[in-house]
Design a protein around this nucleic acid. Structure first.
Lengths: 342, 342
DNA sequence: GTTTTTATTGAAAACGTTTGCATGAAATGA
DNA sequence: TCATTTCATGCAAACGTTTTCAATAAAAAC
């Protein structure tokens, strides 16, 4: 079904139909014809070809097509497997719908090396982009080059050196706060499980420790991937040390979940003998035994705010290099306690 | 940058450039010109406008554009929050990439009422569709009507009455097997937590029970949403009954996770006093305390097979109404045991 | 009754491709 | 040498829109 079909059916010109459908002003066609056109549109479920529209409108996109895209970095944190991913998508999509936008999704390696994908992304008819996770900057540059017409984008949990508008939780501060929380409980031998390279949570951990006069003990730092199994294995390793840590900062809840199970298997009681703190406040975390003390990061709000920010940019204009921090807080549940052998 | 630009730059015709770029056979242009064309393409990063391409190719899509889409039903099981979702996406995408396909994602209410979305989907340049979850059939029909050029699609975990090619795990049989597993352990008072309406796992549960001569006790059936919190509340309710069940079939692992925590809070020991079985074999399930006995459903394989099936259809032709069942199996871990007070 | 304004409509060009057809040149075969 | 085949290339139409321009008819103003 095309404009032409409708036009023929009614014996009017294509232009008339087009004008009616796009409703430019009131004086677009005689009321009777308008009605008949809409009737056909409704009956046949006619949808204008966006291919044709895009083509025609070309560079000067006057009329918005109201499509934005989400570009997820696949590795390793913005991982599609992560609970982050699903909740984020949901909140983004809901917020977008609220503004009348459609969301398209793309998943990419963080280096966006896949040219084919870039191509698809390029002419996918999107006006704006939410770039999720730690793409490296060269990626972003490459992407901009593709969009010679200025593409509007907003980062969400971007890499530290991001130069574009973004919205994030201060990962460094999360590291600091979680660690000093453990320190305040009297712990001195604090371990870390998680990624370390380019991971600001880890930086926060180290600095917080140093500021309190504790050297970060190398044996207590386990550099590993952010999954449950890694948490499990890592804690087992830590617990087999001669001098066990009394507390562990797990970089995310999945690791923490694995760690809790490892402690159980090695008959180490939590929190009596070992305190564990995670990050994310995953749905699961409050059903674990013991319930996990963790840092709540406002995933839903992050998604919603990023979408809102993108929306504002789309209406107003271009990047202005703002970094917006959303607050986080520690949720005390059952997995942390005062250090006994202090 | 367009074909025209390239053509002008080299003083050849647009057709020549187009032909070179699309490489129809060897005898397409003089070698020298070919080289110069490719040189410019590389230098300028030219990408053909898919808008124009789509428009031109229109109905007779001869050349494939190698794009498929995933249509997720949002409610309630194919929920975007579910671990299903993320793992499924990953396996689908990996398999698709393997065939050189790009995946686009769409999330929809299960009734696909959102016309705008249908519109986007319609001309999103896709060749094939993986329809995930329990869309109702009217939805599918509506969709087909939109795609007057026959759209190829494959269902994944479709509703029971699906009339199209699909791939699935036999939910009914899962219900039967899980239940008879519990029966074999000597349990008679078996409860069910989860969805009941149109839920074949539940049907399997009921029938298995009846076949063994136990009536399904109404008090033991808690109809609820498939989330951890619901599992938590539901089990609490069950445990406050005068005559407690000795085993619970949780419709998925999330519910089971909540249930485990509820048992813990009410000082009911698992599996000594209560056996719990879940379904899904989520990443979490083997880190719970106790480790969850659950039905492993091959999520990754489901995704991969659906993609492969779609791929085959795309190459070969149309729907032939096959239902392909993938095997599942029970993973015995720690949350189920013989019934003691039997 | 003429002129001006306004409302309604259609023709046609343009967006960037792809492709059938035509053409001319070069190469092959006799 | 001429007839044929093969190769290289361009022209032009088509895909479904949007939009400018011009044309007509009707209404309003004089």
């Amino acid at each position: 079904m095309t404009l032409k079909d409708i036009a023929q059916e009614l014996g009017v010109s294509i232009s008339t139909v087009s004008r009616v459908i796009n409703q430019k002003g009131a004086h677009v066609a005689n009321k009777d014809i308008q009605d008949r056109i809409w009737e056909i549109v409704r009956q046949t479920g006619y949808i204008p070809s966006s291919a044709a529209r895009c083509l025609k409108r070309g560079a000067e996109i006057k009329e918005k097509n109201r499509v934005i895209a989400c570009l997820y970095a696949r590795e390793p944190i913005g991982n599609i497997d992560s609970p982050f991913f699903s909740r984020m998508s949901r909140s983004i999509e809901e917020e977008a719908l609220h503004y009348g936008y459609i969301v398209k999704y793309f998943f990419t390696a963080s280096d966006l090396d896949n040219v084919e994908k870039l191509g698809v992304l390029y002419d996918s008819n999107v006006e704006g982009l939410i770039i999720l996770g730690r793409h490296n900057l060269e990626t972003i540059r490459k992407m901009r080059r593709f969009f010679n017409k200025n593409i509007i984008y907003v980062g969400l949990n971007p890499p530290v050196d991001a130069k574009y508008d973004c919205i994030l939780c201060d990962g460094y501060q999360i590291g600091v706060d979680a660690t000093s929380y453990l320190i305040k409980l009297g712990h001195k031998n604090i371990a870390y499980i998680g990624e370390t390279k380019n991971e600001v949570r880890f930086d926060g951990f180290v600095n917080s420790l140093e500021k309190s006069g504790f050297a970060a003990n190398k044996d207590y730092i386990v550099s590993t991937m952010p999954y449950a199994e890694n948490g499990y294995q890592s804690l087992k390793k830590l617990l087999s040390l001669d001098c066990r840590p009394t507390a562990v900062f797990c970089m995310n809840d999945k690791i923490a979940m694995g760690a809790i199970r490892a402690a159980q298997d090695m008959h180490v009681r939590i929190p009596r003998e070992l305190s564990i703190i995670g990050v994310d406040d995953t749905e699961s975390s409050k059903y674990l035994i013991p319930k996990l003390t963790t840092v709540h990061v406002p995933i839903d709000e992050l998604g919603a705010m990023a979408t809102k920010m993108l929306y504002d940019r789309l209406e107003k204009g271009h990047q202005i290099n703002i970094k917006m921090y959303l607050p986080f807080y520690i949720i005390e549940r059952e997995s942390c306690a005062k250090c006994l052998n202090g």
